[in-house]
């Protein structure tokens, strides 16, 4: 009797968990490509890394919060890796990392280093790797309709909406000491989100950007960390 009760309880818990998962997350497909060489086998020691977003395209900017997400992902899994905050770095190097002036090739670093204050600042930061992330998350499609109303008896919505998101990011790793590109990682993630509404809208969001962040973060962690 007790055994049957426990099995029923477990089944109920599993169904509830599955339902909760379905409710909180839509479907996401993710692909990560990797091409790296000269990996630091013993980690980066006390050197630092900076992750920067590319923002010189006319129709998109790599999101600041996406860069922050990757940095947090890496540091949370290996506390020995020191990642310089992107905005702090850009401000301390002003105006050499603005969209107009940022180096596009590793060879451009030599041009920057000709400025003594820039060379001194980079030396003080002990910068070993500069990682450029280029891409963005966009909404690809949307459909459905929803009507909301307010009456004396209360308020409510009815309808159904769905939309797709796609994230496409490429990370390029520059070795600062050798002034060379040592890796290129790419992640493409897509997902469909849903929002059915019967009185209360229930969003089923596909974590597209979050999955892209995790995918790119894991690959970068593998490159930078000696423990992964």
């Amino acid at each position: 009797m007790n055994r049957t009760l426990s099995t029923t309880k477990n089944l109920f818990r599993s169904v509830a968990l599955l339902g909760a998962t379905m409710l909180t997350g839509g479907c996401v497909t993710s692909t990560v490509d990797e091409m790296v060489f000269n990996e630091p086998i013993e980690g980066i020691g006390d050197a630092t890394v900076v992750i920067l977003g590319r923002r010189h395209a006319s129709d998109y900017d790599t999101e600041f919060d996406f860069i922050e997400c990757i940095a947090k992902h890496i540091v949370a899994r290996d506390r020995s890796i020191e990642i310089i905050d992107e905005i702090e770095f850009i401000n301390s190097m002003y105006p050499w990392f603005e969209p107009r002036t940022a180096p596009l090739r590793p060879a451009d670093i030599d041009r920057l280093m000709q400025q003594q204050p820039v060379a001194d600042q980079l030396a003080a930061l002990k910068l070993e790797y500069m990682i450029w992330v280029d891409g963005s998350t966009v909404q690809t499609n949307s459909a459905g309709s929803m009507t909301c109303g307010v009456g004396p008896g209360g308020a409510g919505c009815f309808g159904f909406g769905t939309w797709g998101n796609e994230a496409d990011y490429e990370a390029t790793i520059w070795d600062f000491t050798d002034r060379a590109e040592v890796g290129r990682l790419n992640t493409t993630t897509s997902g469909q989100s849903y929002m059915p509404a019967v009185v209360v809208p229930i969003p089923i969001i596909a974590p597209v950007q979050g999955t892209a962040c995790d995918g790119l973060g894991d690959q970068l962690l593998e490159f930078l960390s000696s423990e992964h």
């Binding site: 002003y94 400025q115 003594q116 204050p117 820039v118 600042q121």
Partner: peptide, 9 residues
């Protein structure tokens, strides 16, 4: 906004 001082000679 906060505008940083330029890093230059």
């Amino acid at each position: 906004g906060n505008f940083p001082a330029p890093l230059m000679e």
